[in-house]
C-alpha cells in the first residue's frame, strides 16, 4: 500500500530530514512510526501525503507513483488518504457535522449521501450526539475524534496520523488508539507517527523507528 525505496528529502539549505528510507506497508497492515522529535516522522508522513516531494528515491502510495502525480492530480490523490493531525486542524467556525462533511463536500458527493455518511462516521467515533456542536465547545479528545471521523468519512484505504495523542492524557489516548485499531480491523491500512511508547507496547503492532532521518529499526511484517 505504501512503498518507499531510497527516499531522501533534503530541504533547501542542505538539511536532510529523511535519508535513504526503505519500507513496505502492505494493504490492511497497521504500523507505528516512532522516534524522537525531529527524527523525521512528520516529514515521512508529509511525503506520503504530497505536502512535500522527495528529493530522491521512489514512493508509491495506493498504487500511485507519487513522482508522476501532477499538481492538478494531488487533490484527487488525497481523497484516498485520510489524515489525522496532532492539532486536529478543525475549522472552528463550523459545526462538527460540517467539519466531518468537508471531504465529501469537496468531492461533490450528493447532499443526502453526505448526511448519511457523516452521521455514520460520527457514530463510529461515538459523537453522533455532538453533530451540531462547534469544535471549541468540545474537549481535546472529542475534537480529535471529530478529526478522525473527518479522516475516515470517505472511506479512504489509507489512514495516516501524526502524533494523534500528543495532546491527550492516557485514558483518552487509549480510546483514540483503539479507534485506529478498529479501523485497521475492518481493512484500512494505518500508519501512526508517535513517540508514545506506551501505546506501541499496548497494541503490539509493527514498529518502524527513525533516528536523525534514518530508519534504524523495522520490526518486520510480523507484529512484535
Amino acid at each position: 500500500m505504501i512503498s518507499f525505496s531510497n527516499v531522501t528529502k533534503r530541504y533547501p539549505g542542505g538539511h536532510e530530514a529523511v535519508k535513504n528510507i526503505n519500507f513496505d506497508l502492505a494493504r490492511e497492515e497497521m504500523a507505528f512510526l516512532t522516534g524522537h522529535s525531529g527524527a523525521g516522522k512528520s516529514t515521512l508522513l508529509k511525503l506520503i501525503t504530497l505536502i512535500e516531494r522527495p528529493t530522491r528515491g521512489q514512493a508509491i502510495v495506493n498504487n500511485k507513483n507519487l513522482a508522476r502525480l501532477t499538481r492538478r492530480q494531488i487533490p484527487y490523490f488525497r481523497r484516498d488518504v485520510g489524515i489525522v493531525f496532532q492539532d486536529y486542524k478543525l475549522l472552528y467556525d463550523r459545526t462538527a457535522f460540517d467539519n466531518v462533511a468537508l471531504p465529501l463536500v469537496v468531492a461533490g458527493v450528493p447532499h443526502r449521501e453526505i448526511a448519511r455518511r457523516v452521521r455514520a462516521a460520527l457514530d463510529k467515533v461515538g459523537l453522533l450526539h455532538k453533530e451540531r456542536a462547534y469544535p471549541i465547545t468540545l474537549s481535546g479528545g472529542e475534537q480529535q475524534r471529530i478529526g478522525i471521523a473527518r479522516a475516515v468519512v470517505n472511506k479512504p484505504p489509507v489512514l495516516l496520523a501524526d502524533e494523534p495523542t500528543g495532546n491527550l492524557d492516557e485514558a483518552l489516548s487509549d480510546e483514540i488508539m483503539d479507534l485506529f485499531h478498529a479501523f485497521n480491523q475492518v481493512g484500512v491500512t494505518v500508519l501512526i507517527a508517535t513517540h508514545d511508547q506506551r501505546q506501541v507496547r499496548r497494541l503490539q503492532k509493527r514498529v518502524l523507528e527513525l533516528r536523525q532521518g534514518e530508519m534504524v529499526y523495522d520490526s518486520g511484517t510480523k507484529d512484535i
Partner: peptide, 16 residues
Amino acid sequence: RDEIEVIKLVGGTNAF
C-alpha cells in the same frame, strides 16, 4: 488561510 489549507488537505481542488 487555515480553511484553505484544510480544504487542500482533504482533497479540495483549486477550482473548489
